[in-house]
């Protein structure tokens, strides 16, 4: 039993009167604390699959269980709550909140998402944010605004934000597509280190062959179908 299990999972978009099948019946399992990549050409369904795992979308058929929860059963509010509690997100365009400082961006999920205020009292919250900033090497930039730091630094902050509320799973759709190769590589290294330090499961997608090599488990998607059962390196 994995952290994420999909059986016969399909997703079909409906555009006007036409059905566009994006995921065509896939089966896979992702083990806890693994470092997993979904790879494949453009349009193969990587983003669609990651959105499903991230409870941002509902499957058309089949089942997808994330942390033993059948995500088809979650309504909007429950899905938001589930994501806030269990899943961290890293985006291709970093997506930091521009009016907040680096520190506040990392703090955001603890203040605005986790509604249980007792869980993160001010002192504990501050310590947690500082620890994450230290882990991603951004402590000295804590008071800067996102527009005052580089793309690579932004993604480091995004990694810290994704991890701050101790999620079981972090999803990253093309996290390095907007970074140069060296920086991309370092972000991957950082993610892997975070996995080692915190035991968080990382699932990312990429179509960059050099980055794929960093994954410990690689699922190859081709036209909405998995090409292998998950090849382990």
């Amino acid at each position: 039993m994995g952290l994420v299990t999909a059986s016969n999972l399909t997703k079909t978009y409906r555009v006007g009167d036409i059905d566009v099948p994006a995921i065509k019946g896939v089966n896979f399992a992702i083990a806890a604390s693994s470092f997993v990549a979904f790879v494949g050409p453009s349009g193969s369904g990587k983003s669609t699959l990651l959105n499903l795992i991230g409870c941002l979308d509902h499957p058309t058929s089949g089942t997808l269980k994330v942390l033993d929860t059948d995500i088809a059963t979650l309504d909007r509010r429950a899905a938001a709550r589930f994501r806030g509690e269990n899943i961290g997100f890293i985006f291709q365009d970093f997506n930091l909140i521009p009016v907040l400082t680096v520190f506040e961006n990392v703090e955001y999920p603890l203040r605005m998402v986790q509604l249980d205020g007792n869980k993160w009292p001010a002192e504990k919250r501050r310590a947690r944010v500082l620890r994450l900033l230290d882990a991603v090497g951004m402590t000295d930039q804590a008071d800067k605004r996102p527009d005052q730091i580089s793309g690579g630094q932004k993604q480091r902050v995004a990694v810290a934000r994704a991890l701050v509320s101790q999620p079981k799973l972090v999803l990253a759709d093309e996290p390095t597509a907007n970074l140069d190769h060296d920086t991309a590589y370092r972000i991957l290294e950082l993610m892997k280190k975070m996995r080692d330090d915190f035991g968080t499961t990382f699932v990312f997608s990429t179509h960059d062959p050099k980055i794929m090599g960093e994954a410990e488990t690689t699922f190859t998607l081709e036209d909405g179908r998995l090409q292998n059962g998950g090849s382990h390196v």
Binding site: G54, L56, R76, R77, A80, R81, F82, R83, G84, E85, I87, G88, F89, F91, D93, N95, I97, P98, Y108, P109, M112, V113, L115, R161, A162
Partner: peptide, 16 residues
């Protein structure tokens, strides 16, 4: 819109 998408994706409740 993208900012709203971001905060919604990371779990900010709709009411917030």
């Amino acid at each position: 819109i993208r900012e709203i998408g971001t905060i919604a994706a990371i779990g900010t409740p709709p009411s917030r």
